[in-house]
Amino acid sequence: MKRRAKPLLGTLVEIAFDAELPDEEVNRLSALAFQSIHDIHQLMSFHEPESDLTRLNLAKPGQWVSVDIHTLKVLSCALQIERDSQGLFNAGVAPLLVKSGLLPAPCETVPGATGLADMIELNGKTVRKMAEGWIDLGGIAKGYAVDMACARLLDNGARRFVVNAGGDLRVNGIADFEATIRDPDNPGRGVLRVSLNEEALATSACYFSDALIDPHSGKSLSSRYSVSVSAPTCMIADALTKIVACTGQIDHPILNQYMAKALIV
């Protein structure tokens, strides 16, 4: 396969194409996909001062904020998974990540962590801030960025490719594609290969950071295992890894609900 890579989303994003594609077409398609990922980052980054997310975090209770349709889709999915998981997935834990030094504070006063459903209300392309709080979409937006890169590639004629953003990946048009899972005790070494068919795979682990938070206890997850989830979309797979990481259950009921499967290494 022919590969192109670029640093985005705080990781290295790699796109692999059918080896039969001319180099000019590979360059054109990869540029479009990388641009899609960049655009999603600009909209939903906790770090970007002009992002939709930053404007939401700085909004006061009662204030309405206009957001991009992509931001709205991710917020809607995050709300649904929060409800379906009874709060095990919660994009409202950003204050805990700030207090742990894992995220920069948008302003001096740090609010308490709260459920996303208690913090915002969606209406059309606007979001109403209902309570003080900060949102971090790092647990779901990277997967969505991968999905949007895939959609851009399909819209522009690509049929056989893999988009991989630091372990969050999606496969299109390639049967029995083998993805490698890192060894949690030695992240530079692959320990397991997983076969994928027209699906996505996301992996969450603590070997590179402690940015996984249990929303119920408010504590960082410090386990040495990694969690991988395969699902129809990378956004869903990305979010569900956090639920499996919190519970340690590879048979958690929410997996069937979202047509997903999990493994722990």
Rank of each mutant, 00 (worst) to 15 (best):
I37A: 01
I37G: 02
H38V: 00
H38L: 12
D39R: 15
D39I: 03
I40R: 05
H41E: 15
Q42K: 14
Q42N: 12
Q42E: 13
Q42H: 11
L43H: 08
L43A: 08
M44F: 02
M44S: 01
F46K: 05
F46P: 00
H47S: 07
H47M: 10
H47R: 14
H47C: 03
H47F: 14
E48V: 07
E48I: 01
P49I: 10
P49Y: 10
E50P: 00
E50L: 05
E50T: 03
S51V: 01
S51F: 05
D52F: 00
L53W: 03
L53C: 01
T54E: 01
R55K: 14
R55A: 03
R55C: 01
L56T: 01
N57V: 04
N57Y: 07
L58S: 01
L58A: 00
A59F: 03
A59V: 02
A59E: 02
A59M: 04
A59L: 03
A59Y: 08
P61L: 13
P61I: 09
P61F: 14
G62H: 07
G62F: 04
G62M: 08
Q63F: 03
Q63W: 00
Q63D: 13
Q63Y: 00
W64G: 07
V65Y: 06
V65M: 08
V65F: 04
S66H: 15
S66P: 06
S66I: 13
S66M: 14
V67C: 12
V67H: 09
V67P: 03
I69G: 06
H70G: 04
H70R: 15
H70T: 02
H70D: 11
H70M: 06
T71Q: 07
T71H: 05
T71D: 07
L72R: 15
L72F: 04
L72P: 00
K73V: 00
K73S: 12
K73L: 10
V74I: 08
C77T: 13
C77H: 13
C77W: 09
A78E: 08
L79A: 11
L79C: 11
L79E: 13
Q80L: 14
Q80F: 04
Q80N: 14
I81E: 08
I81T: 04
I81G: 02
R83P: 00
R83K: 14
R83Y: 02
S85G: 00
S85H: 03
S85Y: 01
S85M: 03
Q86V: 02
Q86Y: 09
G87W: 10
G87Q: 08
G87L: 06
G87F: 07
F89T: 03
N90L: 09
N90F: 06
A91W: 03
A91H: 07
V93A: 09
A94N: 04
P95W: 10
L96A: 09
L97P: 07
L97E: 15
L97V: 06
L97K: 15
V98S: 10
V98M: 13
V98N: 11
K99A: 14
K99H: 04
S100I: 00
S100L: 12
G101L: 08
G101I: 10
G101D: 08
L102H: 14
L103E: 13
L103H: 11
L103I: 11
L103Y: 10
L103P: 06
P104R: 15
P104V: 12
A105T: 07
A105F: 04
